[in-house]
Amino acid sequence: MIVLTNYLIVGSILFVLGAIGFLARRNLITLVLSAEMMLHGVSLNLVAFSNFHQNMQGQAFTAFILTVAACEAGIALALILTLYKRSKSLDVNLWSQLAEADIESPHEEEPAVPTAQPTQEFPHLTPAGRSPQFQKETANRV
């Protein structure tokens, strides 16, 4: 016994949460992740229907969704990199050139958020194909 609605409910919850994330978050990468999660909800729906109807059509469609999601992720990330190169920020609010001319920009300078934990360090990639050149003080420290 398999209850179709159970899966549909989970799928729709994933879809809606993804939508909320897409609307509310401002980091471009998080936005793309949220969109991917909406695709998960849809995929789950299709698989559940496939099982319900006992045929492979739903699964075939899910395979296509997988393909499209991969393409989407690749292009979105390339775009994000381009945008980041221009503005040195991943904030989606910076990109509002389509606005009406006299509407004040929604992007206002906010006070920096005091973070409780110390600044998190992210790993930096070393450029491939070249030997890293150390700064003088770094070398001294080393």
Binding site: F22, L23, L31, V92, W95, S96, A99, I103
Partner: peptide, 14 residues
């Protein structure tokens, strides 16, 4: 109605 057209993608999506 013009404030709708504020250029934010999230807003359009909403």
């Amino acid at each position: 109605v013009r404030p709708i057209q504020n250029g934010l993608v999230s807003n359009y999506a909403w």
